[in-house]
Design a protein around this nucleic acid. Sequence first.
DNA 1: CAGGTCACCATCCCTCGAGT
DNA 2: ACTCGAGGGATGGTGACCTG
Length: 792
Amino acid sequence: MQTFKGMNKTTLKDLFNSGFEHFKVSKGPNGHFLSKKCQEKLKTKLPASSYENVMAWAGDWISKLNGETEASLKAESKQTNSVTEQPASESVQAATNKPSTIIIDLCSDDDEDEETCESLDSLLDSESSLSKSPIIIHDDELGDIDLKDYADHVDGKLDLKTLKTRTIKNEIIAKRVSQTAIEGRSKARAIRSKQKAKQDKLSPDKAQDEPTTRVLSDQSKLKPNETQWITTTPHKAPKETSLRIRTYQKIKKVEQDQITTGKTHEEPKIGFHMDKSNISIKEKISITPQKTQDTATIRDTVGKAQDEPSIEVRSEHSKLKSSEHSTITTHKAPNETTKRATFDKAQEKPTILTDQSKLKPSENRITIIPQKAQDRPTIRIRSDLLLNSNIPTPFENTQLIDGPVGLPAKSPGSTSSSGNRKRKDCDTTPDNGQSCAKRPKALELLRTHPRVHLQLPAVQLLLEKVAHFADDQGNSQALTLINQLLHSLQVAEKKISPLPDRFSAGKRQFWREFLALYQGMPQLWDANHVDYRNKELRNKAYELLETKLREIQPNATRTEVGRRINIFRTNYRREQMRILKQKELGFHSDLCKPTLWFYDYMGFLLTQESFQQGRTRKVRGTATTKPKTMFEFGKDASSDPLDAVSDWPTKETIASYLPEQGVQQSEESSLLSPKIEIIEHDGEPMDTDRLTRDGDVKPEICGFNTSDYKDRNVSTNVALTVGRGSNGTDAHPALSEASEVLAKSWAVQYEEMAPTQRILARKAIADILFEGCMGNLRINRGETRSTVGNHL
DNA sequence: CAGGTCACCATCCCTCGAGT
DNA sequence: ACTCGAGGGATGGTGACCTG
């Protein structure tokens, strides 16, 4: 176990004061050695005496490592030779015998010349175990390897194959994230250059003139007692948004900082308001240990009394001692003048904060590293942390979608938000975060310089780390507080950045599945459905949709689900109306075809009166118009259902539905809408007027209720012929006997399912039926046009 | 121009208090 | 105990505006 024990304090102080904290131990054919670059850096930054001390100290460890490695490799592969050809400069260190060390980070990156999150004190206090050591062993064969893994390998606990696998796995992850990061940075740079002049005008503080969110921190000089600011800084608006997390020791000083940073024209702000409920996020939560010294102080503040809403986290150390007493207080800022947060394009495209290309498995969980190229440090997060973390992070999602992190989706199928006048003003914004949909999901760690970025998930991870520590310490109180803070952060995150679009990178396939799922939940859209008023079932259905939505939007809520659905319905209705108008005007059929990509996937809504022609908006004070059922369409003489709906069968097409003429229909016609026709026994369309006027033939009476039918997911895109006996009472679907038998057999199995399984089964069946209607079902085609595979 | 978003509004349903 | 109406929440439709 390598620690700083044995290294004199003067050397340590010199080491850390020099700003040098990255070592890299490489393994060559002749054993391990400290890279030449590191040595040079050390030499230039350290006093001679300290330099010698450090090199001796490092050499001791390396010698020890070489010895272990040699023995291990001999035993394992019988192919290694003893270390013989170590360069002179390397052997200098290797030959020395000094106490062992802990290696903090890499120094291999030219872009990295400073920054570390580690503090001297914490390291001095550290009894760091190997497992906690972020030391990197660079093996020519295996690449960079976590010290612990390498030690396990040396000890024979980890075979070469596993070690390679781990390395490869981490490299893949690093590459993925890196790619998105690079794309994001490039885009962000382009955006910044475009809007630089604009931001200069709008942002009096030059430090905030970049259209990104960032973490501003002089991490190289970070001391335990110093303050870290994590601030989200929109730049365009004179009214900006601030989300701050800072480490601090003294409460009073923090409060003073809050006051001193209260310039509204400079400070970012949050000003969200519920449109109807007028709920404003102006709460202020402080978790404040009573001991102001040497205790962890975590403050989460949303909203400020001085009209400067913000979130602040103060933490001296990432630990809370059980003996420490903490309190949590909630402040409501009274009589606050709501400021509208305004966001510009630049802000909507935050700078990518991660540079995973250099991700090393052994790095600290979060390492803040400046990048020369952009003068922007990045934050690295251990890949294993991402893999093991339960917290949904953008990084995980970037692996799943096309678009880079932080950038709005570009795909035509994307539901990428595209800004909005209302949202821009953040005025009377519902508490669903809609108004700030594109606000970067990043915090800005503001200290001095350089600037580094820290995304909310990273903060969450930090907090989680603290929580683990508190848990290990058995400090349930601290754990509770931290969890509260995490929750608070997540809530704030939702309100600040619901991320509806950052992760929905235009995956039409996803939305098709989403709509199929929605279609399989008639209790949500079928006003005639027996469960339409059943809140419990509706809630369950929404929960399923919410779960589905979280595939691309980790923080999705039911509100978001409703909003998405509303968007789809709105656009579908609009498209429907457009087609109807085109048809009414007698335009060419080409002009009457839907162009909405998901139009066909929402055809099931045509069974709803609200999506059919003739429905006019009811005016308050006028007589209430009961919703018409499909069977009531004939009431209004001016609205012929056969002509009303775009894809409603014309009288000519109706003939094709007649049993004697077969039930075949063109594929095209079957695609676009459900076709529930009521046909007289003699083949003529049923006089729906008579039906409803007489009131003696209701759908329910006929034993055929549209909602029930839809409940079985058969209505969608299925041409349905309802025969009616001459006596008007024996109406049955014109199904073949074979179909009826088959349907009954399915029904038996369906009845055996649990409610949740039924929902899923309905969805699956609906999907398959739909794909079948689309002609997409295939056998062993290896194609993925059908979603059948998802259900079988 | 397609699509996303939101304010505003209509409608339905539920709750609750007043009146009978 | 029952009825009735006001108030409010939930849900959905419409139109306008916005972005890319």
